[in-house]
Structures are given as structure tokens and as C-alpha cells.
Design a protein around this nucleic acid. Structure first.
Length: 423
DNA sequence: TCTGGGGTCCTAGGACCC
DNA sequence: TCTGGGGTCCTAGGACCC
């Protein structure tokens, strides 16, 4: 018997932006994607005035003007740091937990030996807000999928005061399922909810009473697992040991399209450098590096092209020099003149733990780590990313992204620390 | 004018093997 | 004229998540 609690930060990025700027507390706030492209987070007020998730900024300009919406570029350094504080708080209350995403955490609440779980959740909610300034909602259920569903209802219901505990009230499960539109079920995305609705399956309750054979055929084992979880059978266990990544990448849309190969190369060098850093930070090496470039799919009048290529290393590596060399050779191989490139990326595949990589079959002598990368990473860690780099990429090139409304790095840069003025 | 980035898992189909 | 059955491995693509 297991009971899951899902703690989810309310409007996380928007709440982070508000933390150090209290005057935003009562104003609608939205946070934009990279390049200030579209909305990826909204405060409650922003939701209420009808700003949709994913809406491009240029389409909501009038709403922004009309309601005095605060528009923020995304500041992942800030969100990551605040997330860590929230997770630490949750972990100190429930040792058996799984950090599921930057703003969500599953807790195993079975062995806490608390007399009243619902009350415990309310207290946790309160102390999390007190310690971090971030409001959270908590849903509790016998499976992760039901905990998710409870969490969503907790966010919607004013009466719930941020906590819904289905484990404490099994009789609530059926009405909860009836109240949940199929598209809001965890694991049912846009395509599947459309397919299910066409079949008359409109709610989580309909889905839970669906026919296994048909679901298996249409949605594979993934869909079947979701249905079973809605029925209360655990298919997704708590994964409290974080799994090593299998792939890692650095991809960006350019601020403006780029036609020159040198410019694309410049961007790719920068992405490769960052991707290599990530791989080293995870203490891994990559067996394959893959590169892609593509034109702007939204620009219907421009010629479309998507190119990609990859290199398999004889010896899996995380060395920026080996990786940028491979990326350069891939670009030389795939490059085509005459297109306006909008997005590019470098992907590191076949990741394995450093040292665990099997030796090459044909070469007994693996290249030695000369320490340069470690030294660079240490310096960049200490003095800020990009403090020291290989002479690979220029600065302030055309492809760089727009971030016109970036908030200060209140928690990760000394210079941006909030100041208290005594007066 | 202006539409993100970073992941996972599963499946179908082809190549290849005996 | 007849044209197997069973298996593995790999990849591309599609679904999902935040």
C-alpha cells in the first residue's frame, strides 16, 4: 500500500518573479520563453484576463497594455535556485520523495506516522510558503495519476485551501474523476484527448471505465497504465533515485534568421560548448554528437529545410575540443547555401558515466583527460558562466536570443542581491 | 515584424541472422 | 509452381511530460 502526495508550485515562474518584487503581487504577471517568444507561465490574474498558455507575445499585446501586465523574460538561474530551496524544504519533511520537475515533487507519505495526513499537508503548504515564499498546492492519492488529479482539483477549488486528500476520502475519487476533463488527465495530451473525445470519452471517469483491449490497441501500454492508475492500481512507482540522463542537448532559435555559414558555425560552437559542459557536470561522456539546423516553420513564404548529421566517437568523450571538432565536420558535411536558418542545436547522445564507458575495440589506448576541461569548468563555476572559453565563438552575434525584460539574478549574483535600505 | 527548450518512453518497420 | 518462422537490433517518428 502506497500513498502519493504531489506538491506543485502555483504558477511557479510567475511566483518566482514576484518574490523579490512585491509590487507585482497584485498585478498580472507573465513569463516568456526564450527569445521573448511566447507565454510559458502566468499568474492567476493573467489567466483570469484570458492570456492563454503558449500565446505568442505579439498576439496578446493589447491585453498586456489594457491590464498593465508585467512581462518577464525567463530567468532560469533564478527559477532553478528557488526550486532547490522548495525541494529542500519538502525533502526535510518527507525524506522519501521524487523531484519530478522544476516545480513538482512526489512524496511518499505512507511512513510518516502522522495522525492526520490532510492536516500534515496543510502544515507543509504553510511552512513551504513561510520558508521560501512560494505558494504550493498538494494532491494526495493512491497512485501518482490520482495524486496529480487531486492536485489539479486542489488548485481549482477555493474551499480546498490548496489541499485535496483522496486517500483520506475514497468516496471522493469517483466525483473527482467525473469532474476531470479527459485532457486534464496526466498522460493524456492533445492528440489522445481529441481521439478519446471523438469516441465519447469526455472525462477521467469515462476513461477509467474504458475497455482495456481497445485502449491497448489505440494508446499502447502507456495509455493502459494511465487507465489502471485512475482505477487505483500503481503502475508508476516513486523514483527517489534520480536516473542518469541518456541525452542532453543545447538548442536555440536565433533572434533573427541567419544565412551565413560562419554565423551558423559560430552559434553551433557556442551550443557545443554548453552541451559539453552539461555532460561534464553530470560526470558523463557522450558516444554520439548530433547537429541539426532548420529554417523557420512559421514563415510560410520562406523555403523550408531541415538538415542533420551525427558523428560517433571512437572513444566517448566530454571534451569540448573533440565535440566542437565533430560539430564542425558535421556542419561542413550537411551545409546548404540559400536558406534562412532559424534554429540549430547540438545533441549529445549515448551518454554513459565517465569511466564506465567500454574501451574501443580497435584501440587499446584511450585518450587521457588532460585536466583542461576541469580547470575551465572550475573557473566558470567560480566566476560565472562564460568567464573563460575556448576561442571558438564570437560575442554578440546576430543569432543571440532576445531577453528584453530580464529580472535580476537575485539569488545567484552578488551584484543583483536585493538591498535593504534602512531609513 | 513577432511562435521555447529539454527531456522520456514506446512502436513500427527494416535489416539481418539462423 | 511452390516461397517459413522466429528472433534481435537499430532507427525514425510519434506520443507524452514540464
Amino acid at each position: 500500500m502506497v500513498t502519493f502526495a504531489l506538491v506543485d508550485c502555483n504558477n511557479f515562474y510567475a511566483s518566482c518573479e514576484r518574490l523579490f518584487r512585491p509590487h507585482l503581487k497584485t498585478r498580472p504577471v507573465v513569463v516568456l520563453s526564450n527569445n521573448d517568444g511566447c507565454v510559458i507561465a502566468r499568474s492567476q490574474e493573467a489567466k483570469s484576463i484570458g492570456i492563454a498558455m503558449g500565446a505568442p507575445l505579439f498576439k496578446i499585446r493589447n491585453l498586456v497594455e489594457e491590464h498593465g501586465v508585467e512581462v518577464c523574460s525567463s530567468n532560469y538561474a533564478l527559477y532553478g535556485d528557488i526550486s532547490e530551496r522548495v525541494m529542500t524544504t519538502l525533502g526535510s519533511n518527507a525524506p522519501n520523495h521524487e523531484v519530478y520537475s522544476i516545480d513538482e515533487c512526489f512524496l511518499d507519505v505512507d511512513n510518516l506516522a502522522v495522525p492526520n495526513l490532510t492536516e500534515w499537508c496543510k502544515n507543509l503548504r504553510h511552512s513551504t510558503y513561510q520558508w521560501t515564499g512560494i505558494p504550493v498546492s498538494i494532491g494526495v492519492g493512491p497512485t501518482k495519476t490520482l495524486a496529480k488529479l487531486a492536485n489539479r482539483l486542489a488548485k481549482k477549488s477555493i474551499k480546498a485551501a490548496g489541499v485535496i486528500d483522496l486517500s483520506n476520502h475514497p468516496a471522493w475519487i469517483e466525483p473527482a474523476l467525473r469532474k476531470t476533463p479527459i485532457g486534464d488527465v496526466w498522460g493524456v495530451g492533445r492528440r489522445w484527448s481529441q481521439m478519446l473525445e471523438e469516441r465519447g470519452i469526455m472525462t477521467a471517469h469515462d476513461f477509467a471505465h474504458g475497455e482495456d483491449g481497445w485502449i491497448r490497441k489505440k494508446m499502447g501500454v502507456v495509455g493502459l497504465r494511465t487507465v489502471h492508475e485512475l482505477r487505483g492500481y500503481v503502475c508508476h512507482a516513486l523514483e527517489d533515485q534520480p536516473q542518469p540522463k541518456q541525452t542532453t542537448c543545447c538548442t536555440r532559435s536565433f533572434g533573427e534568421t541567419v544565412t551565413e555559414k560562419a554565423q551558423v558555425h559560430d552559434a553551433l560552437m557556442s551550443f557545443a560548448e554548453r552541451a559539453a559542459e552539461k555532460v561534464r557536470a553530470a560526470d558523463q561522456v557522450a558516444g554520439v554528437v548530433q547537429v541539426f539546423i532548420r529554417t523557420d516553420p512559421f514563415n510560410l513564404s520562406a523555403a523550408q529545410k531541415s538538415l542533420s548529421g551525427s558523428v560517433t566517437f571512437d572513444h566517448p568523450t566530454s571534451d569540448t575540443r573533440a565535440i566542437t571538432g565533430a560539430v564542425t565536420s558535421i556542419l561542413d558535411r550537411i551545409w546548404r547555401d540559400g536558406f534562412a536558418w532559424k534554429k540549430a542545436g547540438v545533441m549529445m547522445l549515448d551518454l554513459t558515466a565517465t569511466g564506465a564507458a567500454p574501451p574501443s575495440l580497435f584501440d587499446a589506448v584511450a585518450p587521457k583527460n588532460d585536466g583542461l576541461m576541469n580547470a575551465m569548468d572550475a573557473l566558470n563555476q567560480r566566476y560565472g558562466r562564460g568567464s573563460i572559453r575556448l576561442g571558438l565563438a564570437g560575442k554578440d552575434q546576430e543569432w543571440r536570443m532576445r531577453r528584453e525584460n530580464l529580472s535580476p539574478s537575485y539569488t545567484t549574483k552578488w551584484a543583483d542581491l536585493a538591498k535593504v535600505v534602512m531609513g
